[in-house]
């Protein structure tokens, strides 16, 4: 395993003064699948946005493959990490499924044939190749979630950051999504409230509360630590 991302003392304060991250440090090795748990408002989504290069940390250091990402160019981070937002209706902003999955590759400046190739591969990977010409608005929530993942897969990211991938899904949609996440080879950091998903899929768990990491370790240890889970508003699976 090699070190993919390293964060040291990340602080993020929103423009309205709300401190969402108050000194977060973590290291993500290539190939890891990590669950990020914690109560609402713990700072999980903010951490994903910072790691995805969408928010610039107020303070702290971020390194990608050992190289520090300066405040100047978050694009290096965006090139490595692909972010899947919680609400697929935010992620799927184009009229058709094809347009949406093609959006990233087009902005990467790829030639047309490669854009089409990537769209096809990404949709196939999530089992939605049949829907390329569909209108996003007409898909079910589960289908939208899978297409949202495809929009990120088409960018070929090394790290996938997912925010609440199973939220709003019915049991069958949830099952299919878990199977899909299981199949994908990418390094993953997944923010979730779904503790059964955590138990099934993730060897490592990070617990966050009030903008800080309060626990970080193997899932079997953390999920058994009922006192810890309860202290941070979580339930054992």
């Amino acid at each position: 395993m090699s070190l993919l991302i390293e964060a040291e003392g990340l602080v993020y304060i929103y423009p309205d003064g709300h401190p969402a991250l108050q000194g977060v440090s973590l290291r993500i090795q290539r190939g890891e699948k990590i669950a990020l748990v914690g109560p609402n408002g713990a700072g999980k989504s903010t951490l994903l946005l910072v790691l995805g290069g969408l928010l610039r940390p107020t303070a702290g250091i971020l390194r990608v493959e050992g190289e520090e990402v300066g405040n100047g160019d978050p694009r290096r981070l965006r090139a490595k990490a692909g972010l899947v937002f919680q609400d697929p209706d935010d992620q799927l902003f184009s009229p058709t499924v094809f347009d949406d999955v093609a959006f990233g590759p087009i902005y990467q400046g790829l030639p047309e044939w490669e854009v089409r190739e990537r769209v096809h591969r990404a949709l196939e990977a999530v089992g939605m190749a049949w829907a390329a010409s569909r209108i996003s608005h007409h898909l079910s929530v589960g289908e939208k979630k899978r297409v949202a993942i495809a929009t990120v897969l088409a960018l070929r990211p090394e790290l996938m950051l997912l925010d609440e991938p199973t939220a709003g899904l019915d049991p069958r949609g949830r099952r299919e999504l878990i199977r899909l996440l299981h199949r994908l080879p990418q390094t993953m950091l997944v923010a979730t409230h779904d503790m059964r998903l955590v138990a099934e899929l993730f060897p490592r768990v990070i617990v966050m509360d009030q903008g800080r990491i309060v626990a970080d370790g193997p899932a079997h240890q953390i999920l058994r630590d009922e006192a810890l889970l309860e202290a941070h508003g979580l339930e054992p699976p």
């Binding site: 946005l49 995805g52 290069g53 969408l54 965006r78 692909g82 972010l83 937002f85 609400d87 209706d89 935010d90 992620q91 902003f93 093609a102 959006f103 990233g104 087009i106 902005y107 990467q108 047309e112 854009v115 929009t151 990120v152 960018l155």
Partner: peptide, 23 residues
């Protein structure tokens, strides 16, 4: 608020203010 989130989603996939489309 939705507009803001959509903007984030676009930037996450490389949007730089210019509109690009396939020919």
């Amino acid at each position: 608020e939705r507009g803001e989130r959509i903007y984030m989603a676009m930037v996450a996939r490389g949007y730089d203010g210019e509109v690009r489309m396939l020919p």
